[in-house]
Nucleic acid binder design. Sequence first.
DNA 1: AGGGTTTAGTCATTCGATTTAGTGGCACCG
DNA 2: CGGTGCCACTAAATCGAATGACTAAACCCT
Lengths: 347, 347
Amino acid sequence: MTAAVGQNGVRRSPTMRDVAEAAGVSPTTVSFVINDRAGVGIPDATRSRVWTAVKQLDYRPNATARHLRTRRSQTIGFVTNGLVDAPFAADLILGAQDAAWAREHLLAIATTDGDPRAEEAAMETLLSRRVDGIIFATSSHRVVTPPAGLRNLPAVLLNCVCADRSLPSVALDDVEDGRRATEVLLRKGHRRIGLIEVVRPGAQPTGSGRLEGYRQALGAFYARFDESLVHRGDGSAADGYHVVRELMRRPQPPTAIICGTDEIAMGVYDALRELRLVIPRDVAVLAFDGRGAIATSLRPALSTMALPFADMGRWAAGYLTDHLDHPMPLPAVQQTIASPFVERASV
Amino acid sequence: MTAAVGQNGVRRSPTMRDVAEAAGVSPTTVSFVINDRAGVGIPDATRSRVWTAVKQLDYRPNATARHLRTRRSQTIGFVTNGLVDAPFAADLILGAQDAAWAREHLLAIATTDGDPRAEEAAMETLLSRRVDGIIFATSSHRVVTPPAGLRNLPAVLLNCVCADRSLPSVALDDVEDGRRATEVLLRKGHRRIGLIEVVRPGAQPTGSGRLEGYRQALGAFYARFDESLVHRGDGSAADGYHVVRELMRRPQPPTAIICGTDEIAMGVYDALRELRLVIPRDVAVLAFDGRGAIATSLRPALSTMALPFADMGRWAAGYLTDHLDHPMPLPAVQQTIASPFVERASV
DNA sequence: AGGGTTTAGTCATTCGATTTAGTGGCACCG
DNA sequence: CGGTGCCACTAAATCGAATGACTAAACCCT
């Protein structure tokens, strides 16, 4: 409890030297004891003298000084463009944070709103802080040209890949997701399945990847692919609503619908309700979603493919911390994580 | 581009000394130029020599060394229990991150799942890193007994207050929110207004605060307070659904309903639809919500009181950075931020 | 020319740890 | 009895920047 007092009388946090004096040993010994350094024999009597002094002074090693000496900041940078637009993007951060914290690393987050100049500034700040590695994340799955600085230190791409696949990355397995979502419905006997996907500039892989998986699944079940059942929109509820009204007016309407987002599903539910169609009896609905909030609040509860954003974040931080000592071109693993199917009541 | 080379041939990032040699000046001068130190006269010729060397060597000051010397880590700690349960809690972080970043501070996030031992460990880690200040946040508005460590350095409570109000804090203005939500409906002529609030152990202030505001508003408009129109539940859609079915069966059903969460509103919409009641013609609906995702996806779009979590986070980080140099008991401002009304189509 | 002031810097110390190289003392061995 | 090895430590250098104390040279004024 007794903090050391400087010559000006100001309370100063105790240093290793203070502990050393209190324990009657040298600072070196204190360092050895505190870090439990292997290969140096220090008798238990001395160790406990040191620990007693540590407790008594309420000593806490100064991480900054340690980082300077060891050239390790125990910090990993997290650069990302716009979290604003994507609600689930927060899960990428939370997952990475979780894994980093478990490995005694801090996550230094830098948000850049996508502007290259801001991105440059963010990299500058992180490099200045001598982060041990960097996670570069995007709010939607896409191909990016990451800042050049990433090649000089351990780095992982999160929710994106680079054109030449030269950096390790972790992303959604869109094709697999699309296939598995479709298979869930095919197994229940559905053969005419609507697909309402998000196609925004810059968000290509997800929409088209899932479509590809959708076709593969249909093929595997010898079901006909009908282009007119596929709609590409902006991912909004309004979009889902209008598409379904149009879709169900057809001579041969679909018996199931896959929604690219849970917002789309909300619109789909509204449209089906207005048409007096009962979910899942008349039409089954399946959606991709980030968090369960919407899915569990709909009636009947919405079955979803749960996008594994938190797991992706965890993977990125885990891979990075595991390879901080690896010689520089890191193995460019291209990891994908498929979305688990969460069965509720809409299928 | 030419990085300095150590005696073992390993590429080492350049230091101030390297820059000094390249520019033909002393490290001190480099420091003066880089920090644009006031009061020392250095001619432009020398300055540009230094900057040229900086660019040429791709020099970047080592923040760790600087922090050690200046005893400032330019980092603020963010301690929080469970982000897991509360989706909007992420906005508290994002807001704080935003403000901290703008002021050249890093946010060191420590998640603690509420366990006091984990909380202690989190504090330990942050203090070890010599954070300049700490934000202590909870996922729901409540009264807390914060870790003792908070009294020794600048700290702000976020989304909570301490019993004796001795620490600065920023939180929701529940009473005001409740009053204003009710007034919105009263002004539209509603006099029988249902209130479905969340009452969970530990989340007292919000539910009961809004109820208090609700009563005040009714009083101000000379409307009768009817206890039977108030329901306390768990905040789920199912809760909203069942309450409304029961409520509308009454001889004198409410003409408007206030929902504590947007999930409740989803259940309310479903129940009203089943009862063939049209929103807002037959019944108006108003909810409190974190993000707009659900509100804009409902039909008709849900009018809400938008909970200002990001702003609260921003305020906390802003207040903290503005008071880092303040002598220690910080002015214990108890800031509240009211939720703005976002008019959509349900009222 | 001499004294004072300004200009344009430099030197050496400091922040608080880690780490390399080394040292005094003791036991043991031949 | 001298040498060797081990034990239990310590001294001093180092990480990279910031900074208080100084100083050499130039300039100004009388």
